[in-house]
Amino acid sequence: MALKRNVGFWQGLKYKGGGPMWAWILHRLSGLSILLFVGLHVIGAFLTAQFGSDVGIAINVIYEAWWFQLFVYFGIIFHAVNGLRIIILDFWPALLEYEREAIWASWFVILPIYFLAAFSIITHALGG
């Protein structure tokens, strides 16, 4: 039996959960996006290889576009580093006391890696 929750979407957004709440939301959002985009990419590759279909090429033109990659990279890097944080906290529950600090630490890992990757992508896209 599931919990009965009379909480709407907009009400839910007002919940002041802070860092852990946003990490939770972003983790789910990035996970679902990766499933969608990489799934489409794989299906596109399959269609192109097996049937020579143009649909696969059309999908991959979008998927491989540099502005689209900026989103994909963020999703993957965030999901990976935040996932490692979850693994560490789950296997050593004593550390849960420092969950907020752990989330700050994970952002200090995510942002430099992401901006390095984004810098490389953008200079490559604009500089040719």
């Binding site: 039996m1 599931a2 789910r28 996970g31 679902l32 990766i34």
Partner: peptide, 20 residues
């Protein structure tokens, strides 16, 4: 690992919004 991880994650997210 990637496909199993992805579809189980999808299942977890959707089942959070479903009853039994």
């Amino acid at each position: 690992f990637a496909i199993t991880h992805a579809f189980n994650g999808f299942r977890m997210v959707v089942e959070d919004f479903m009853g039994a």
